[in-house]
Design a protein around this nucleic acid. Structure first.
Lengths: 211, 211
DNA sequence: AAATGGTTTGACCTATTGGTATGAAATATG
DNA sequence: CATATTTCATACCAATAGGTCAAACCATTT
């Protein structure tokens, strides 16, 4: 039987996974190419065959995450019921934070150091935020929700949902979740949703009998 | 006149300040003793005269911050009006996040990497949270506020207030605050306070004409 | 089987890392 | 003023950093 080499795609994926988790834990400067290579299961020289520099890998990794998020996190262009729209958004965001905390942490880390890399890609972010602000302002104008500051409303949702990724260790401790279990998204989604729906003067959606 | 040396106290303070801002930006592994020394205005060898290792400085710096926070951030033991109590807490927390974002960021960074250093000091944190939970449960029992999950309620306040330190760069961008100005705490406090008071079924305090 | 091309490797480069040794300089004490 | 003690700077250490290189490897095409 032929012991075939791993494909380029497999190796690239391993490098990306390693980059997300290592950069998320110790940051760009704090992660060595040695560590990165080991985490990806390859040698340092091999790593440099696939990437041209650590900085470039860092940037690519961040952009990969942001690109993915663009498809996941915004209000739908065709906004329906505000309560449902907001509740869905929160549920998606919390699930992602709990399921892929490293990606959330890496993003947070980059912003916390002043976003030297992401800054130049913030035009796209701005667009998404403005779009959502438009939706929110429409709801307010039609009397469907109480007046809110559209941008801060979005930032605060972001803040709370991200929190369960960034402060996972603390949340685990305070909520009593064992180290080998993921946080239970149910109660978190319930509490966060109620927080923001009440802010809008809306009732929480009774219950979700599906998925 | 004698050009006297800086006192131990001055130098120690300079080292602490440097540690907070440098560790906050690039983390423990990402900050070199060289950088630390330069930021404190001394030589590397001189730095090592005052500290025994980078790790120890990191730990001391974190504990210094946490100790300070213990005196700043908790509900008063003698809780008065819930609305006032919560509003005051939020105002204090937001002001601190905007005024000393580096300390907030350093703390966040440590928790994000799993709190390997802070973990052993979390008993004290637990106590504070439990105390506040008691207060909140008291309010609920007496029908003064709507039922909330006491721990998550606190975590969410923490999440939102911290956000304006950790995501300062992004908040600046989205709110249009120039680089040379601090964030304006007024509107932030107003929006955040309304968010959490409404969650409790309370009205925002009309205005602050007295103390 | 030979030639081809992408892939992998270990040895190696220079710069920087955290930390130290030692003696000079400044200060405090007699 | 002389001595003792604290503080500081230069030079240095082994270890590790990011990155390169030529030679070896291996799957494919001919």
């Amino acid at each position: 039987m032929k012991q075939t080499r791993k494909s380029r795609a497999e190796i690239r994926q391993a490098i990306l996974d390693a980059a997300i988790s290592e950069f998320a834990r110790e940051g760009l400067e704090g992660t060595s190419t040695q560590t990165l290579a080991k985490a990806a299961g390859i040698t340092k020289a091999q790593l440099h065959y696939y990437i041209s520099s650590k900085e470039e890998l860092y940037e690519d990794t961040l952009l990969h995450i942001v690109e993915l998020w663009k498809g996941l996190f915004f209000f739908s262009a065709d906004p329906g019921d505000p309560a449902r729209e907001i509740a869905d958004y929160i549920a998606r965001k919390v699930h992602h934070a709990i399921e892929f905390p490293d990606a959330s942490r890496l993003f947070a880390r980059e912003v916390a150091r002043g976003a030297p890399v992401l800054r130049q890609h913030w035009a796209g972010l701005q667009d998404n935020v403005n779009l959502a602000s438009g939706v929110i302002e429409g709801w307010i104008a039609q009397g469907q929700i109480q007046p809110v500051h559209p941008v801060m409303f979005q930032m605060n949702i972001w803040a709370v949902t991200q929190h369960y990724a960034e402060y996972e260790a603390q949340a685990r401790f305070l909520l009593g979740t064992p180290d080998d279990e993921k946080l239970d998204p149910g109660p978190i989604i319930a509490e966060v949703t109620e927080l923001f729906l009440r802010r809008c003067g809306l009732q929480p959606i009774p219950d979700e009998a599906s998925s």
